[in-house]
Amino acid sequence: MAAFKVENINLWYDDNQALIDVSLDIPGNQVTAFIGPSGCGKSTLLRCFNRMNDLLPNTRIEGNIIMQDGREISDPSVDVVKLRTEVGMVFQSPNPFPMSVYDNVAYGLRCQGIKNKKQLNTTVEYSLRQAALWDEVKDSLQRNALKLSGGQQQRLCIARAIALEPNVLLMDEPTSALDPIATAKIEDLMQSLKRMYTIIIVTHSMSQAARISDQTAFFLLGKLIEVGPTTEIFQLPKDKRTEDYISGKFG
């Protein structure tokens, strides 16, 4: 079942068209990778799924993104705050808040008005375990999150998103600021997380897309060039441009 059905999305920043007639399905409980050179629109499309583009002035969107429950994502009946709790996001560089590890993970819940100490404790532990960070921080939950290493910070940001029990996790180049060891940990984590969440990841690393994703979509200059199972895209790309990009001829 598709977590999102993207139908003919066109998006403009002022007069620049960033997405041109993009249509694809995002299958549930799989990892979908968006690849393509810088400025191809992959991050822009990612931000459509939790409507972060709403925050940018002079942005215009046409087309539909149908959610699992059948509603269109920009429908007036969709509560954008609730949408963002259901569709979590992890950013390019780790951005933990300048608070304790505990407060970071509890942040989203507290914004939802949850104050019950027991419930918070349970969720914080659960989320940190899910993000494979619990063993490293369980004795220092009150420590400043900014004192963690970059890789730990990024896993904390994943835990922070998981705490809200989302259906979907959006990841915008989550490992581009991390070293290879921290990257490997995050990639392992994604493999275990996809059982519970639909994951969409934007990545500049072709090998990362090949390693972790089930489906890959290749974008170029705002257009979706090709989408399909990752093995097919990497072994038998149908489009010449896809082949050139993954074989490193440009990008």
Partner: peptide, 19 residues
Amino acid sequence: NLELGSIALGASRMETNFK
């Protein structure tokens, strides 16, 4: 990025500003 992170977690603008 901190503000965006907060808004992406379902916080309102004002919650983001204050917290």
